[in-house]
Computed example of a mutant assay.
Amino acid sequence: MLTFIGLGLCDEYDVSVRGLEAIHRADAVFLEVYTSVLTGTTFERLEEYYGKKITPLYREDVELHPEPILDAAAAGEAVFLTAGDSMVATTHADIRIRAAERGIATRIIHGASITTAVCGLSGLQNYRFGKSVSVPFPHGKWFPMTPIEVITENLSHNLHTLVFLDIQKDKERYMKISEAVDLLEEQASRTGAKIPLYVGVARAGSEDPAVHAGDADEMRNFDFGTPLHILIVPGTLHDIELEYLRRFAGLC
């Protein structure tokens, strides 16, 4: 059996009771650490709270060499842990397909996801979000323009855009909202686009989340604090969305 367990947004206490029971029963515990991280805890604290030795999984472990995961699931009870919800990343779905091809039973235990948490924190209505996009750190001459293309398309349909910010776990580097805004503004200047409003969220799910809305200059100067950060580019705001941002995100 291979059980996919979403751990929620912040720390070791966000896992569901059902998820924690499955971890306790498991013969092998794997934690995917490259698509997202629980910044409110440490690897050691997770092992202590779960009472299990945890094997970290990096991109190549999941995408290129998943055999140890599948072998453990074929031999007994294995769990595949991820921050947030289990099936947000395509590579996680691929692992489930590979397990099915080997005749391994699978199940999913869901956790809180940033895709819904940002709606509660920002007041932006979930059915008004279009396609999401990620902003990567540029590398050399590589400067992808996909983010502004997706944002522009969503804005043309009056839809919000959820913008994921790059994580380079091997370098312990997490993109900040100010960095993402700089990159998006450069992309906008190259294409003639305009982003009138941003909404930034930091540390969703923690005791001290930060939520702030404003134009590019406002977002560059606001201190969102420690990671993880995520960004929203809203479409035209509904009256309730506007009032929510004024009351809870400092929108002037």
Rank of each mutant, 00 (worst) to 15 (best):
P56A: 02
E48Y: 05
H212T: 01
R246A: 01
G192C: 13
M175T: 09
R203M: 06
D71W: 01
T161N: 04
A193G: 06
S134H: 09
I23S: 01
V118I: 15
M219R: 03
L228C: 00
A83H: 01
E172K: 15
V199Q: 08
Q168R: 15
L20P: 02
D94G: 04
W142G: 04
K169A: 15
Y127G: 10
V15N: 05
E12I: 02
Y34G: 05
T90E: 00
A213F: 09
A26D: 08
N158E: 15
S36V: 01
E179P: 09
L38N: 00
L38Y: 02
E44P: 00
Y198Q: 06
F30C: 04
G8E: 06
E149F: 09
T116D: 04
R203K: 11
A26W: 04
G214N: 01
E67F: 04
G76T: 12
H229I: 00
R246G: 02
R98Y: 10
V233G: 03
P68Q: 11
V233C: 09
L159N: 08
S113Y: 04
Y49A: 14
K53G: 12
V199M: 08
L228V: 08
L162G: 00
A105N: 06
L70V: 12
V33L: 07
P147N: 02
T161G: 12
I167K: 05
A28N: 07
H92C: 08
A93K: 11
E241P: 03
I23M: 10
L64C: 06
A100F: 14
A210V: 15
G51N: 10
E186I: 10
A83L: 05
G235Y: 04
E48K: 11
R246M: 10
P56S: 02
M175P: 03
G250I: 02
S156W: 11
Y127H: 15
V201A: 12
D170N: 13
E218S: 15
F248W: 05
I167A: 06
R102A: 09
E63C: 10
